[in-house]
Amino acid sequence: MTVDASQGTNAPGADNGMVLEARDVTVRFEGLTAVDSVNETLHRREILGLIGPNGAGKTTLVNAMTGFQRPTAGHVRLGSRVISSLTPHWIRRHGVARTFQAGRLFRDMPVSENIEVAAVSLGMSRKKAHAHAMELLEWIGLADRAALPAGILPYTDERRVGIARALAQKPQFVLLDEPAAGMSDLECDDIMHVVREIPKQFGCGVLLIEHNMRVIMGVCERIHVLDSGKTISRGTPAEVQKDPVVIKAYLGHE
């Protein structure tokens, strides 16, 4: 099925058959190959885990898929369209959103405006954007923090606002970079609940980078394991957990 990606994500009933795929994506920094010919296809309404030891190239792959890093070789496609040559804001407008490890909220702005920024940039009026932001905050359980400056939020809430911001205007795909890092078990349960709800509520495909194996095993249907930029294993959580190559990669590094 071919879909015109330029129609954007916001068209009602956007195609569920749309995929986000990395084809032979390679990213090289002066002598270091951070991502080495990685292939993956992310479908809508699925949750794909991306794991690997520190420095495996997970974030670099997400950067390459969202326009923050031009692949040295290979390309990223959204449906039939190559997006790896686009700038980040265009990729977001085409429906591929992301979060950041550090949260990266707009600290001087109220929480609600953090989300409104994304909504107005994707075409809403300020009034509609505000209503939309309040809906998302309600959904993620932070409606009572809407008027606070984002800079004073505890980091658990910061991550959630980051996720809400990425979900503004229903993207087709959302790439979450370690949303549960540094969280307690209880807080992880919360985040797991949120991540599980994303495909159901928004219909998007989720790519989840996470170090916390409990979170990964708890929410992902499929897992992709990177080590030193290379794919070393792919499969269901149960398969990957037993894979000797994966066990060796983790033990070898820790």
Partner: peptide, 12 residues
């Protein structure tokens, strides 16, 4: 506030 996050939010 954050140029990278702005781009990721669709801001030109």
């Amino acid at each position: 506030d954050d140029e990278v996050a702005a781009k990721a939010s669709g801001v030109n």
